[in-house]
Design a binder for these strands. Structure first.
Length: 116
DNA sequence: CGAGTGACCGCAA
DNA sequence: ATTGCGGCCACTC
């Protein structure tokens, strides 16, 4: 089912924004993902920055706090600051270092197994 | 429609 | 290990 959804949006008939929403909705609660990965999965490999912009506006019901940068670092401009994002992550059982980086990023990082 | 923008990314000092 | 910088390109106004 997940596969179906992602496959559809990688066919890119949807806008990037739509694709980002769908992918974020698929993101498991105990995982994180990156702007770049989302961009790639959405079929716009160079649009990482755009994903950030979309996240900035995105609907509150999606868990944007689990979206981090390529090094596992928390968002620079997260509303309320990185401290807030970190707390939200910890509520999901995702720990961070003092440096505002997701702990065990390699393990936490979400990878869709299929994805062409 | 065109120019400016940005919750990025990777490589060079 | 840090910092800086330029490229990136869909989105907004």
């Amino acid at each position: 089912m997940k596969w179906r959804l992602e496959l559809d949006n990688s066919q890119a008939n949807l806008g990037l924004r739509e694709s980002v929403y769908l992918l974020m909705a698929e993101l498991p609660a105990d995982k994180v993902t990156t702007y770049g990965d989302i961009a790639v999965m959405a079929g716009h490999p160079r649009a990482a920055r755009i994903v950030g912009g979309i996240a900035h506006q995105g609907p509150d019901e999606l868990s944007w706090h689990r979206l981090v940068n390529a090094r596992g670092g928390l968002a620079i401009g997260y509303p309320g600051g990185q401290g807030v994002q970190r707390q939200l992550l910890e509520l999901d059982g995702i720990e961070c270092t003092d440096e505002y980086t997701v702990k065990d990023f390699g393990e936490r990082r979400w990878r869709p197994n299929h994805h062409l």
